[in-house]
């Protein structure tokens, strides 16, 4: 359905373009791939550097230590929300020491007000760009609805080493455009006061990243 001045606008554009010279082809000589393989040591080190620059917390663990690491990084918090498709061992780690864990959508989805009462959200991620320190969520079952990774004040985000690519073009190539996508580069921040960056405004004020290395 469309309404309003559709034909009028399109006709004005066509008139404006009438008789124009067509521009040449688009040069794409920029880098579309990094120098290093996804998940390589160099790529992981770059990512860690970028995340720390954004004042995110970051830790590297082997797969065997994942559950214990998740549990220890949740220390001090007792209300957690998770998406329905988190790996079983991570869900188990969230539930340790009597923490209350809300599984979004199981049985019911949480309202915005309920999410506001939760302290931490734990999610996986789809792909991560090392050079820009950017983690992308695509709403898959292990990441959940956009609201759950937004309202809680702390985001514990799991990134598998093999999901880390060096450059942004590589990441966009892996993404499905029509999914709801959120690209996250550090905790919420603003540069609106004298153009100095201050971390922590409306989004999660703490971003805690667990990089799971290849075994």
């Amino acid at each position: 359905m469309s309404v309003g001045s559709r034909e009028a606008v399109l006709n004005k554009i066509r008139t404006a373009l009438d008789g124009q010279k067509m521009p040449g082809p688009i040069p794409r000589e920029y880098d579309t791939h990094g120098q290093h393989a996804p998940g390589s040591e160099h790529v992981i080190e770059t990512l860690v550097d970028r995340l720390e620059d954004y004042k995110a917390l970051v830790v590297r663990v082997g797969p065997a230590d994942l559950a214990d690491t998740v549990s220890s990084r949740l220390q001090g918090f007792d209300r957690i929300v998770v998406p329905a498709g988190l790996p079983a061992e991570v869900l188990e780690a969230c539930r340790r020491v009597g923490r209350t864990v809300f599984v979004d959508g199981d049985p019911a989805i949480l309202s915005a007000a309920e999410l506001d009462e939760v302290q931490v959200v734990v999610t996986a991620s789809r792909v991560t760009v090392a050079l820009t320190g950017t983690i992308v969520l695509d709403g898959a079952a292990d990441q959940g609805r956009r609201a759950i990774s937004l309202v809680p004040d702390r985001h514990l985000c799991l990134v598998r080493a093999d999901q880390i690519v060096e450059t942004l073009p590589e990441a966009l190539h892996l993404l499905e455009a029509t999914r709801p996508l959120t690209m996250i580069s550090g905790p919420s921040a603003t540069s609106d006061i004298e153009l100095n960056r201050v971390e922590g405004v409306h989004g999660p004020r703490t971003l805690d990243v667990v990089i799971i290395e290849n075994s």
Binding site: Y30, T132, R146, R179, S185, S188
Partner: peptide, 27 residues
Amino acid sequence: QLLPRSSTGERMNPYTSLWTGVTPGDG
């Protein structure tokens, strides 16, 4: 790549949201 470096002088801005029409059950 061009926009964040040119505007706030960051490698990437903290959040970028992408959506296509309506996603049932999300947003």
